[in-house]
Write a protein that binds this DNA or RNA. Structure first.
Lengths: 234, 234
DNA sequence: CAACCTGTAATTGTTAACGATAATGCCGGT
DNA sequence: ACCGGCATTATCGTTAACAATTACAGGTTG
């Protein structure tokens, strides 16, 4: 019966989502090796399908494929990281603009329900979940904006951004609470502005929110690799 | 020696570029079937590699893979087409903004050289080449803007746009000349504005240019498929 | 004549075995 | 004791044969 093929495809999709979730919630850290055989066992897939999975992830820049060496979760440099955030801003502000125009009461309800879940994860101290939900909030905005083409870009860019956060965050959990609190509040304010169709205000809030996210990162020092040894030992 | 693997990879890249070129220059029309074995022969690739090629193209939305049936060059609907252009505008205006800030004299030279080639293709009556060069002009702007992350989006979106033009263009070659002429002139004006760092003017020119491109398309009628037969035969 | 069923051919999907490459560890030399 | 070369092993990459599915053509029947 057709069940076999369908289940294979859904298995592959499920595997993708699980790896994706592990990466964006910082349980798979940049640089981690993804051995084919291990993935075969973990998800009960044939090697060929694992290959496809890895190529999909590679195409989304979540993993890097090094020929004859293996697959590793990606480790973007600071330059790339900065441009990802720059691009994220472009895309996400457009999404907010779009949604703020045609946000229905039901949309608002969906958004508020999500923020509630965020709050709960935060109270429960489930950091991994909180991180993922925080990212998914932004994805949700994109989904409600009904811009499928742009949404795909958004999905990729937000995933990459999550990865970058794992790499370059300051204070690995020191002020995580205050930052998380602020993010939640900002999310709430943002929903208000969107639902009230106050477009420019919504855009500004999102812009500030993204700036804040970015400021928690350690992206500035391009760390000159070519240190002048002569000067050092002079 | 290592030559083998390298040549295989470059062969695959070459094949991708050839298929890409054929699609964006309207020599492979939407709906065309891409049989695996044929591609194997055409590019002297193994079936596995042809598979990879097709998946890459599918990921860029240039071909659609129908399971157990085959690969076809994509045939996006009008809605998708419109959103592609909307998104293209977002991305490309950002690129122009970026390049207009840091356009060097050498950048200007490169751009002008390209427009010259466009002109020549136009004089020679090589329509297929003219179409491709016209698209590559926009890609060139993106490349010079030095935004690698955004550039990749641009590449995909422009490719999709070229495909859409093949599907929905009005007047299949009637006023093609006047349209092409205007495009060339606009390209030239755009270069002037960019090189002079007149950012907002450059953005406006590009915006108008994109509007013009879009206006040559036949995207409006969502053609209600559910015709009321009773009314028709009343 | 049209619709339907059936068997064959053509095409795609999957797997498993083989070959190539890079990482690892051992050993001998200095 | 440390370093460089060599063999081994583990992993990735490729291919070719097989299985599954679909499209097509011929023939049959209402």
């Amino acid at each position: 019966m057709g069940t076999a093929k369908t289940s294979v495809n859904s298995q592959l999709d499920a595997a993708y989502q699980r790896v994706w979730g592990a990466i964006v919630s910082h349980r798979l850290l940049p640089g981690t090796r993804l051995k084919e055989d291990d993935l075969c066992e973990s998800f009960d897939l044939s090697r060929g399908n694992v290959r496809k999975l890895l190529q999909q992830l590679a195409h989304h820049h979540l993993v890097t494929l090094i020929p004859n060496s293996g697959a590793f979760v990606a480790k973007p440099g600071r330059e790339e990281a900065q441009e990802v955030f720059k691009t994220r801003r472009l895309v996400e502000l457009e999404m907010v603009r779009e949604l703020a125009q045609k946000c229905s009461p039901m949309d608002r309800q969906i958004l508020e329900k999500h923020v509630e879940r965020e709050h709960q994860a935060h109270s429960d101290g489930d950091n991994s979940l909180r991180i993922r939900l925080s990212g998914e909030f932004h994805l949700l905005i994109g989904a409600l904006a009904k811009r499928p083409v742009l949404y795909q870009f958004l999905h990729e860019i937000i995933s990459r951004a999550s990865l970058i956060v794992a790499l370059y965050q300051r204070s690995h959990s020191a002020n995580g609470r205050s930052a998380g609190d602020r993010a939640c509040c900002e999310h709430h304010d943002l929903i208000d502005a969107i639902a009230a169709h106050r477009i420019e205000q919504a855009v500004e809030i999102m812009d500030a929110h993204l700036t804040e996210l970015q400021n928690q990162l350690d992206l500035d020092p391009p760390q000159e690799q070519q240190v002048d040894l002569k000067k050092v030992f002079a």
